[in-house]
């Protein structure tokens, strides 16, 4: 009897101990997790999201000769709050053809760059993905190596080639293909060539990682069912690589719209790209409110593709997690 009572007490104690421990466990874990979440989350809220609110605020401000060079939206005078919303920057942007042309020119340049990168990048990504496994890694590394080297260096490399006194003109002249040097530098063409050069790896990498997953047996099955190679490419490979095409295109298009360095170094002074306009408003004209307004319009333009890309990537990651 005594023994039974004792053992009963023991087991009760054990159960109580277990309950206490589990409570501690359940309390401790979420706390650790929220800490882990809070650090990067807080960083991004503070340094990425919050700044956009300031950009928005300052875009409604007016330029002032002061430090910082804009008028505060909210002022206190005679114990009353004055809020001065200035829409002038935006009406200016939509009214002045300079800005409109710059936006349009940037979008067009980015779109053409994306298209050319796709046309060049697809065969390359496809070839590397279909290459024997031993060679695949080396080939991919060779494609990506320029991406690792400095962006500025890559742009600079083209300056020597495209210069009006540059190598390409020298070559063409010595081959007697032309009589006088061509104006290659500081043209739309030079911007276009360098843009494609700089952004090509961003297209190839997502295309490759998509195509490499494509099951080669699908193509064998298509061939077995009497499909000609080019037709099985159109009906099997291309549709299945849709996600890679979209991801690559977005990764090229979105940052290309706001490109500054390339139009600055090899572009024409007349046809501006919006990234350069923003830079000039900020650094040369010291017109911060205008630069902010230009930014807001650019973000508004790019928000849809960015969110679209993000949703697609999340979906494919969720699929990967399931397998």
């Amino acid at each position: 009897m005594m023994n039974r009572l004792l053992s009963l007490r023991d087991s009760r104690e054990a159960a109580a101990r277990g309950a206490r421990r589990s409570l501690r466990w359940q309390r401790a874990l979420p706390r650790g997790r929220s800490l882990v979440t809070a650090v990067p989350y807080g960083w991004l809220l503070l340094f990425f999201l919050l700044p956009f609110l300031f950009v928005l605020q300052i875009s409604f401000s007016e330029v002032e000769i002061a430090s910082p060079p804009y008028r505060a939206l909210v002022t206190r005078a005679e114990d009353a709050l004055h809020i001065a919303l200035n829409l002038g920057n935006f009406t200016y942007i939509f009214g002045d053809p300079l800005y409109f042309d710059a936006y349009l020119g940037s979008l067009r340049m980015a779109a053409v760059t994306t298209l050319i990168c796709l046309l060049i990048g697809y065969p390359v990504a496809y070839t590397i993905a279909r290459a024997p496994e031993a060679k695949r890694n080396t080939l991919l590394m060779l494609v990506m190596l320029p991406f690792w080297t400095s962006f500025l260096v890559r742009v600079y490399a083209w300056m020597g080639i495209l210069d009006n006194e540059g190598l390409l003109n020298h070559l063409l002249l010595s081959l007697k293909l032309i009589d006088a040097p061509l104006a290659l530098m500081h043209t739309q063409l030079s911007v276009q060539v360098v843009m494609v050069y700089a952004y090509l790896p961003f297209m190839i990498l997502p295309l490759f990682s998509n195509l490499v997953k494509l099951d080669g047996r699908l193509l064998e099955a298509a061939a077995d069912l009497g499909c000609k190679p080019w037709k099985s490419f159109l009906t099997v490979t291309l549709p299945l690589s849709k996600n890679g095409v979209i991801a690559g295109s977005m990764l090229v298009f979105i940052p290309a719209v706001g490109e500054f360095v390339i139009p600055e170094l090899v572009g024409t002074p007349e046809s501006l790209m919006i990234g350069k306009v923003l830079w000039m408003e900020f650094f040369d004209n010291n017109n911060w409110p205008m630069a902010a307004a230009v930014t807001i319009v650019m973000v508004a333009l790019l928000l849809v593709p960015i969110v679209y890309l993000h949703k697609r990537e999340e979906k494919s990651l969720a699929r990967a997690a399931k397998h």
Partner: peptide, 12 residues
């Protein structure tokens, strides 16, 4: 073995 383990963590 007489102990309620329903809410114990795996490592316990």
């Amino acid at each position: 073995d007489g102990e309620d383990i329903t809410h114990l963590a795996p490592y316990e």
